[in-house]
C-alpha cells in the first residue's frame, strides 16, 4: 500500500503536527502551516490528529495509488481529481488501486492538506514525521517530494467513511484581507510613536519570498527608530539588537522596512528587533496567504490572545464532533 509520486507539484512535503522540544537547539517545530486544516483532513479519513499527511503549496502533486484508499483534501481550495474527475474538498472520497490523484488550479488559500487513511508512514525522526527541508530532517529523505518517490502508508486506525464531510460553516479555506492579531513585543520601545501607529494603520502585502520559515510583508511605511547608541554586541543598523530568542509568530523588521512573521520552520534566534508576536490562533491564517494578498496587523493584549486560542480550540472541537 503506497503512493507513487508522478509529479511533485511546487513544493509538497510530508507534515504532521510537528517536532516540539528541540527549538533551543535550533530545530524548529515544523509541521503543518495550517494545523487546523491538517487535523480536519485527518479526521475525515479516521486518522489521529497528528498522523502525517501531505502539504502541497500553491500547486498539487500527481499521485498514483497502489491500493484502494480513502483520501480527504482540506485547507486551500485546490480541487482534487481522481482520473480527471473532480472531487469535493473537505470531504472524504474513495480512490481505487491504480487510479491517479491530481489537482486543478488553486482557487483560494495557499496550502492544501492531503490525508490518506492510515497516514503517510515515513520514519519518525525526533518524534515526528514532519519534513524540515532546511535541516534535511524528517519526512521523505528530509526534503520536498520528487517524481518517482514512493511513500508507504500505515494501516488504517479505524474504518474510514467515504463521504464524511466538514460542514461548510466550519471550513477555513483561507481568504484575502486578513487581520492578524499581534501582541506588541519586548522591543516595541525602539520605534517612534508615529511608526507604531503606521504599522497598524498600513495595509501590508505578502511578498513572493514568503515561505515556511517566515512570511515577509511589504507595502507599509518604513519604521522610524528612536535614536540610541547601539549596545555592545548589536549590529550598527537601528533594527539590530544583541542576539535574542525568536518566538514562533514573532515579527522582525530588518532595516525597519519589511516585517517578517516567523512560522513553523522558524530560525530560533538572531539579531533583529521584534515589534511583536502574532498570536498562535492566527498563524494558521498566515499559512493560507498567497503572495500579493493583503493583511493588516491589530494590537491585542495577552487576555485577548489567550481568548483567541480558546476560541480556535473550541471551533476545532466542534469541527471534529461534526465529522
Amino acid at each position: 500500500m503506497a503512493l507513487e509520486i508522478l509529479k511533485p507539484g511546487l513544493s509538497t512535503t510530508v507534515q504532521d503536527l510537528g517536532r516540539p522540544g528541540y527549538y533551543h537547539l535550533g530545530i524548529p517545530l515544523s509541521g503543518a502551516m495550517d494545523r487546523e486544516a491538517l487535523i480536519a483532513a485527518n479526521a475525515l479519513v479516521a486518522n489521529d490528529d497528528g498522523d502525517a499527511a501531505l502539504e502541497a503549496v500553491f500547486m498539487g502533486p500527481e499521485i498514483r495509488f497502489t491500493a484502494d484508499a480513502v483520501v480527504a483534501v482540506t485547507g486551500a481550495e485546490l480541487p482534487p481529481k481522481v482520473d480527471g474527475v473532480e472531487q469535493p474538498t473537505w470531504q472524504a472520497f474513495l480512490i481505487k488501486a491504480g487510479q491517479v490523484l491530481s489537482f486543478g488550479f488553486l482557487k483560494a488559500g495557499a496550502r492544501a492538506y492531503i490525508a490518506v487513511a492510515g497516514g503517510i508512514d515515513v520514519p519518525m525522526v525526533l518524534g515526528s514525521r514532519s519534513t524540515y527541508p532546511l535541516g534535511a530532517l524528517g519526512g521523505h529523505e528530509g526534503r520536498a517530494l520528487k517524481a518517482g518517490d514512493v511513500l508507504p502508508l500505515g494501516p488504517a486506525r479505524r474504518k474510514p467513511k467515504p463521504g464524511a464531510l466538514v460542514p461548510p460553516g466550519l471550513r477555513r479555506p483561507g481568504g484575502r484581507d486578513v487581520e492578524l492579531r499581534m501582541l506588541p513585543g519586548l522591543y516595541w520601545h525602539r520605534i517612534t510613536e508615529a511608526a507604531g501607529r503606521h504599522f497598524f494603520d498600513d495595509v501590508w502585502k505578502v511578498a513572493p519570498e514568503a515561505d515556511r520559515i517566515g512570511y515577509r510583508f511589504r507595502g507599509g511605511r518604513p519604521l522610524d527608530f528612536l535614536p540610541r547608541e547601539q549596545p555592545f554586541g548589536a549590529g550598527s543598523d537601528p533594527s539590530n539588537i544583541v542576539d535574542s530568542c525568536y518566538p514562533y509568530g514573532s515579527v522582525q523588521v530588518p532595516g525597519g522596512t519589511e516585517p517578517i512573521v516567523l512560522h513553523r520552520d522558524a530560525v530560533s534566534g538572531g539579531g533583529y528587533f521584534m515589534i511583536g508576536t502574532v498570536v498562535s490562533a492566527d498563524l494558521d491564517l498566515i499559512g493560507q496567504l498567497q503572495p500579493h494578498q493583503q493583511a493588516r496587523f491589530r494590537a491585542v493584549e495577552m487576555a485577548e490572545a489567550l481568548a483567541a486560542r480558546r476560541e480556535r480550540a473550541a471551533a476545532l472541537a466542534k469541527l471534529k464532533a461534526a465529522v
Binding site: 511546487l10 500553491f58 500547486m59 488550479f105 488553486l106 495557499a110 513572493p208 498567497q290 503572495p291 500579493h292
Partner: peptide
C-alpha cells in the same frame, strides 16, 4: 493560458 501558481511574472 492560465498561471499555474501565484507569484511575480
Amino acid at each position: 493560458i492560465q498561471a499555474p501558481i501565484p507569484g511575480t511574472f
